[in-house]
């Protein structure tokens, strides 16, 4: 559904992504693991249009595109409209907006009132805490609740492909487990996920396939089973010996 073909991205003079290739298949959970500074966030920001690649193509094939289309030159709002929704690093909750407004803004591009109301109910069922805090300011939630809000907000846009940047960052292990179980449930409902994580164990256990990104290049790829068993991955990312 998403094919990244030889993407090069610069931030200032730094060559951050040096010809990244990967493809995400419809319906799967794909994970991108790698150390800090490898370019994971840059890659997600490029897919969602916040950054422009210097070279390369990003091809998307979804139900809202006419066949396969290159989205690498589109503005973020255009990409969101095609069903690719990015949950940014650090969650990006609007702290002064209420929880309800944060969710509603996720449906900003939609105008189907009944559909929006139904999705709001759905998100509140998935994350009951959001429903019970709907009039509270987004900034008053805890880290875990904010992550749920960020995911719920993304769901309000009816994503076909959900990009998740470090959803586990700063959360306690129990909350991470709950969150990842919910992500699996979201995937089971038909949403394709591309997950960027430093928590490689969790990411590989959740994902079907994965890539390892090292200083701007994909150095390993395969099914997550293969990567979990890979000696180099074990050493570098899984804390094995």
């Amino acid at each position: 559904m998403l094919q990244i073909a030889d993407i090069h991205v610069y931030r200032g003079k730094t060559h951050v992504l040096k010809g990244v290739r990967l493809d995400v298949r419809k319906g799967e959970i794909a994970a991108l693991i790698g150390a800090n500074g490898a370019g994971k966030t840059t890659l997600l920001r490029t897919i969602s249009g916040l950054l422009r690649p210097a070279r390369g193509k990003i091809l998307l094939e979804g139900s809202r595109t006419a066949g396969r289309m290159d989205i690498s030159r589109l503005a973020p709002e255009g990409i969101t409209k095609l069903g690719v929704i990015h949950c940014p690093e650090g969650r990006g909750i609007f702290s002064q907006l209420t929880v309800r407004e944060n969710l509603m803004i996720g449906a900003y591009l939609r105008s189907d009132k009944e559909g929006i109301a139904a999705d709001y109910e759905r998100v509140c069922t998935l994350f009951p805490i959001l429903g019970s805090r709907s009039n509270q300011a987004g900034g008053s939630l805890s880290g875990g609740e904010q992550e749920m809000l960020a995911v719920g907000r993304a769901l309000m846009g009816r994503p076909e492909l959900l990009l998740l940047d470090e959803p586990s960052l700063g959360l306690g292990p129990i909350i991470v487990d709950t969150l990842f179980a919910t992500l699996a449930e979201i995937n089971a409902q038909g949403v394709t996920l591309l997950l960027v994580e430093q928590n490689a164990v969790k990411a590989l256990l959740l994902a079907h396939r994965a890539w390892v990104l090292e200083i701007g290049r994909v150095t390993l790829s395969g099914s997550s089973r293969e990567l979990i068993d890979d000696e180099n991955v074990k050493k570098a990312y899984l804390g094995g010996t």
């Binding site: 916040l50 503005a75 709002e77 940014p88 990006g92 609007f94 803004i105 996720g106």
Partner: peptide, 14 residues
């Protein structure tokens, strides 16, 4: 209000 708080995330919302 969303744009005032975070322009990038506002763009991601469409």
């Amino acid at each position: 209000r969303a744009t005032a708080e975070n322009i990038d995330v506002a763009r991601l919302m469409g």
